[in-house]
């Protein structure tokens, strides 16, 4: 099934942000839940193998937008030979975009591809988080492939593809984590930090932090340590 979400954030009168475009079709609905916040709401189980979702976000100069989801996305395989499910987020940002969805859980036999392509203006700000758990409790892990490409004023700042799960390149024992947490931030610089199964790398006026482990709770805590904020409570129990 094909899903399309479009949100445009624009600077309105008095420094407020208005959302002239908020629309969705397919398996996601969009709800405005705060002055600058929208929540994506799944209207069906899934995604399923073969599903294709495109999320287009435009944050114009002077505007702010926070994007959240209401619950973890549980990726299920299609019957038979399951093709990957794909979610592409394309963001054009001149203002401030904060993208922090709930975790993606990839069940056994499923393969989810996540693409974030963010094109930033010179002074734009971006925070984008990714939380992944391969397999539900007691289940074989699924596969997840995440590509992040961020450009600023047309110059690539970060372009990486991380592939996790059985058969993936960088997923071989003894380092084959089932949980993955990563945040990329462009706006303010931060120094390099190394931790146990966690590393924060400096980017030009930004940083990218990643942590991995067996369970998302500990992994998020490791990431939070890197980000210099206290660990948050686990949402998956």
């Amino acid at each position: 099934m094909r899903t399309l979400v479009e949100v445009v954030a624009r600077a309105g009168p008095g420094g407020r942000t208005v959302l002239p475009v908020v629309r969705a079709s397919g398996q996601l609905a969009v709800r405005r839940t705060g002055p600058t916040t929208v929540h994506l709401v799944a209207t069906a189980f899934g995604p399923l193998g073969g599903d294709d979702a495109v999320v287009r976000l435009v944050v114009e100069a002077g505007a702010r937008l926070a994007v959240r989801t209401v619950a973890a996305a549980v990726v299920l395989p299609a019957r038979g030979e399951s093709p990957p499910s794909v979610q592409r987020v394309h963001a054009e940002v001149a203002g401030v975009l904060d993208l922090q969805p709930e975790p993606t859980v990839v069940t056994a036999g499923a393969h989810h591809r996540a693409v974030l392509h963010a094109e930033l203006d010179e002074d734009a700000e971006l925070t984008a988080a990714e939380l992944v758990q391969l397999g539900r409790t007691g289940e074989e892990p699924g596969r997840w492939t995440g590509t992040t490409r961020v450009t600023r004023a047309g110059v690539p700042v970060l372009h990486t593809t991380v592939a996790l799960g059985p058969g993936a390149a960088a997923w071989l024992p003894p380092v084959a984590p089932r949980a993955w947490a990563s945040t990329v931030h462009l706006g303010r610089a931060a120094a390099r930090v190394t931790g146990e199964d966690a590393v924060r790398l400096p980017l030009d006026r930004g940083w990218v932090a990643s942590a991995w482990g067996d369970r998302l709770a500990g992994t998020r805590a490791g990431l939070a340590l890197l980000e210099g904020v206290p660990p948050v409570e686990e949402v998956l129990s």
Binding site: R149, T161, V162, A163, A169, A170, T194, S210, W212
Partner: peptide, 16 residues
């Protein structure tokens, strides 16, 4: 896009 395969483990090892 050209290939962009990354292994975060290699990044961490390199920094340490």
């Amino acid at each position: 896009w050209l290939p962009a395969g990354t292994d975060p483990l290699l990044d961490l090892l390199a920094e340490v």
